[in-house]
Design a protein around this nucleic acid. Structure first.
Lengths: 118, 118
DNA sequence: CAGTATCCGCGGAGATACTG
DNA sequence: CAGTATCTCCGCGGATACTG
């Protein structure tokens, strides 16, 4: 996210690479989420990493942050239009990953559980 | 490439992430290439990195290595069927990256120049 | 030609403690 | 609740030199 690219593919992978980015985007694709919700749904993520990734996704224009400025704090994250435009890409990655997992016998722990919208 | 995945998307990104993987695949999509050709076409890649990435892609079953066992050495790399099955994914990444580059004004140095097949 | 071998630095990532 | 602030470790990735 800083240098020059020789191929558009590099740019996309750069934006989606790393350990948590795509999973966060997958969750936000389902709807608006608060910081604490995301943290609970990403087992193993540290607060530092989650905050860092969210800030990066925000800087990249893929995620929008809404601070309600209340006490106690209430901050929501959602996809921007740009973030939503990634849907076909995420879908292609999802489909190929699913087939690959089946072919190779790699287990997938939990296929992106939905947030329970109540 | 070692742990468990919570989403098929993670698996795919894990396989395609990193600095050189997708570019190597993009070149091999055009046809068979020798080690030296690839090295010349990836400005800035070190021999260690190129070898390492090729070995990983081979271990992942995306690339096949053919050693002609001659002196001087002659080694060729090509996509496997599995590697070719990535075409739609690479295309989706390519398309989105192209649009994103246009929207954001990010320059793309050289949109994956073809190997000159003479 | 197609690689190994080795050394090294930077930044990603985790753990822990603290705050408006 | 939603974060900062540090400290630290580890491994990717680059540079350089050597080889069958």
């Amino acid at each position: 996210m800083a240098e020059r690219y020789r191929c558009p593919v590099e740019l996309t992978v750069d934006l989606l690479g790393g350990k948590w980015r795509t999973v966060i985007l997958a969750y936000l694709k389902e709807g608006v989420h608060r910081y604490g919700e995301l943290r609970r749904r990403l087992p193993g993520v540290s607060e530092k990493m989650l905050t860092q990734r969210l800030r990066e996704l925000e800087a990249d224009g893929l995620v929008a942050r809404h601070d309600h400025h209340t006490v106690p704090p209430h901050v929501e994250y959602r996809l921007t239009d740009e973030g939503r435009s990634l849907a076909p890409v995420l879908q292609a990655l999802y489909d190929w990953g699913t087939e690959r997992a089946a072919r190779s016998g790699t287990p997938i722990d939990d296929p992106v559980p939905r947030p329970d919208l109540r």
